[in-house]
Design a protein around this nucleic acid. Structure first.
Length: 224
DNA sequence: GCCCAGGTGGGTA
DNA sequence: TACCCACATGGG
């Protein structure tokens, strides 16, 4: 008898976990730092985000009050290495407005709000799309909200769980409905997917080979 | 020099 | 709704 989707998802998780072990995500010191990182990493390699984080931290801007009071131009200058710096500086500002207007600048206070309601409110903030919002919910606020990203789409399309045309919400629901609603599980699962996809690409540099997960890879349909 | 990276918003048909 | 495109730096 064929395995259920839920147990197949669990098998994939077990394989990844046994291969890579616990990922200990998100790489940040505070919930606020997670939220900032989630915005900065939009369509950007994490290595570049780290440089921006270091810049912000060294100037003392990686805490709510300081960032709230900083000008958009100053923040833009510091986050330059993460790319799209003018855009991201506006997005940070827009998140700060939300954090202060709705929760008095407190991530702890934000955490007390019910997950579904909070997700809707965060999605209404300019500059925060579904992936960024779910990253904040899961990694900063420890809410059981599964994060779907480009890696998730590619990998699960490759192994036949996805057809390719599914929307963000559909993929998110697949994981959330078929897996136990567990913060630690969701945390590890997404982190393991990212780790696996990164390693599969790194492994084959400089020439993309059969393990590469990049969509344009000629071998993209042949292996995980 | 080219491709890509842990997306999102805005415009157009 | 479904595509395009802009946004931008840094590594391979």
């Amino acid at each position: 008898m064929a395995r259920s989707t839920g147990s197949r998802l669990t098998v994939v998780y077990d394989v990844l976990f046994s291969e890579y072990g616990p990922r200990d995500w998100w790489p940040a010191e505070t919930p606020f730092e997670v939220a900032v990182g989630a915005i900065l990493t939009q369509n950007t390699a994490w290595g570049n985000v780290e440089k921006a984080i270091v810049n912000l931290k060294s100037r003392g801007f990686l805490e709510p009050d300081a960032m709230r009071n900083a000008s958009e131009r100053v923040i833009a200058g510091l986050i330059r290495p993460s790319g799209y710096f003018n855009l991201k500086s506006k997005k940070l500002k827009s998140f700060m407005d939300f954090l202060y207007d709705e929760f008095g600048g407190s991530m702890e206070s934000m955490k007390r709000e019910r997950t579904g309601k909070l997700r809707q409110r965060l999605l209404s903030v300019w500059g925060l799309g579904p992936e960024t919002v779910d990253s904040i919910l899961l990694y900063a606020l420890e809410k059981p909200s599964f994060v779907v990203d480009a890696y998730t789409r590619r990998m699960f399309q490759r192994i036949g769980f996805l057809e390719g045309s599914e929307g963000y919400g559909e993929i998110k629901s697949l994981f959330e409905e078929k897996l136990p609603k567990d913060v630690q599980l969701f945390n590890e699962y997404h982190a393991l997917i990212v780790e696996h996809c990164k390693r599969m690409c790194l492994k084959n540099k400089p020439k993309c080979n059969e393990c590469c997960l990049k969509m344009r890879c000629a071998h993209a349909k042949s292996s995980v």
